[in-house]
Computed example of a mutant assay.
Amino acid sequence: MSSSSTNSHPSTQTSTPEHEHPQGSCPVTGKTYNFCPAQAGDVRSPCPALNALANHGYLPRDGKNIGPLDLARALKSGYNISSVLAYILSFGSLLLLGQYRSLSLSDLARHNLIEHNASLVHKDDRNGAEYAPTKVNKRLLEALCAQGGKVLPDRMTLEDAAHIRVKREAECGQLDGVHAEIARGEIVIAIGVLGGKDAAKNGVTISALHEWLQHERLPAGWKPDHTQGLYQTYKMTKYVRDRMGEIKAQKPPVKL
């Protein structure tokens, strides 16, 4: 992980609409990409990655009326995701939601479209509600972080991710093929982006992952040190998928 501050990002992008505060204007107005958590009236999703982008101002801080190009630009600027992967994620999200012009982050909580059961940090939607929980569950977050460190000290690796995904799906039930792939992609992109250019082998520090998930905030002193591309993400996701199958069959790991 880089030691540069998140405030070192260039301020050339168009500013996003500010949200309202009970005390008046947002305290980070005019401060490019500074963190400010969601306020009353703001909406957020079950996706910590997108919530963090809104909390830092890469997306509208209120979380509303986000077009696919806005979403792609935020993914590229905030996480240095490649253009191809950013456009696939952005336009794919609207397609899965059946919304073709814009979305609000809360739309992503509609159950069993993009959101799914067996999340690593969110409770399942068990009551048939249209919208699933968006708050990170503390018990699940601690269980996720406790799974780390088994391969490398104080790090969450792809091997760890495969084990925790197997555990969650054993607890909650098997996911269909589409949602299983989405679930793997979520943790893979988190490790790949936050862990840096060597994340495929070395994973991400557990402290950085915990801060990002708990507070939906970019880790202190972090900025992207590489472009997270489609092929790299595919290889990492395939490793997790293959390892999950091997874990279920109780086979030893292979080198990535």
Rank of each mutant, 00 (worst) to 15 (best):
1 M>Y: 03
4 S>Y: 06
5 S>A: 08
5 S>P: 01
8 S>P: 01
8 S>W: 05
9 H>M: 09
15 S>L: 10
16 T>M: 11
16 T>K: 14
18 E>L: 10
19 H>C: 11
19 H>M: 00
20 E>Y: 03
21 H>V: 00
21 H>A: 00
22 P>A: 13
26 C>G: 03
30 G>H: 01
32 T>P: 07
34 N>L: 06
36 C>A: 07
37 P>F: 06
37 P>N: 06
38 A>H: 08
39 Q>R: 04
41 G>E: 00
44 R>W: 09
45 S>A: 12
46 P>S: 07
49 A>N: 02
51 N>P: 01
51 N>V: 03
53 L>D: 02
54 A>G: 08
54 A>W: 06
57 G>I: 02
57 G>E: 02
58 Y>V: 02
58 Y>K: 06
60 P>E: 05
64 K>Y: 00
65 N>E: 11
66 I>Y: 05
66 I>H: 08
66 I>K: 08
67 G>Y: 01
67 G>M: 02
67 G>F: 00
68 P>T: 08
70 D>R: 13
71 L>T: 05
72 A>I: 10
72 A>V: 05
75 L>W: 12
76 K>Q: 15
81 I>C: 09
81 I>F: 07
82 S>W: 09
83 S>I: 10
89 L>R: 11
94 L>C: 08
96 L>K: 15
97 L>V: 01
99 Q>N: 09
102 S>W: 04
102 S>C: 10
105 L>H: 04
106 S>E: 11
107 D>W: 08
108 L>Y: 06
108 L>T: 08
112 N>A: 15
112 N>H: 15
113 L>R: 15
115 E>C: 12
119 S>R: 03
119 S>P: 03
120 L>G: 02
120 L>S: 04
121 V>P: 00
122 H>Q: 13
123 K>F: 02
124 D>G: 02
125 D>R: 13
126 R>E: 14
128 G>Y: 07
129 A>Q: 13
130 E>N: 13
130 E>T: 14
132 A>I: 01
138 K>F: 10
139 R>S: 15
142 E>Q: 14
145 C>F: 07
146 A>S: 15
147 Q>L: 06
150 K>T: 11
153 P>G: 10
153 P>D: 15
155 R>L: 08
156 M>G: 09
159 E>L: 12
160 D>K: 07
160 D>N: 14
161 A>Y: 09
164 I>W: 11
164 I>T: 10
164 I>M: 12
171 E>Y: 03
173 G>R: 05
174 Q>D: 02
176 D>I: 05
176 D>L: 06
178 V>K: 15
178 V>F: 13
180 A>C: 06
181 E>Y: 04
186 E>L: 06
191 I>L: 04
192 G>F: 00
194 L>V: 05
197 K>T: 07
203 G>R: 01
204 V>L: 02
207 S>A: 14
207 S>Q: 09
210 H>G: 00
212 W>M: 12
212 W>H: 14
213 L>I: 10
214 Q>K: 09
214 Q>Y: 11
215 H>M: 05
215 H>I: 02
223 K>H: 03
224 P>I: 05
227 T>H: 01
227 T>P: 04
227 T>R: 04
228 Q>C: 12
232 Q>D: 10
234 Y>W: 11
236 M>A: 14
241 R>N: 06
242 D>Q: 11
246 E>R: 14
248 K>I: 07
249 A>W: 03
249 A>T: 04
255 K>S: 09
255 K>R: 08
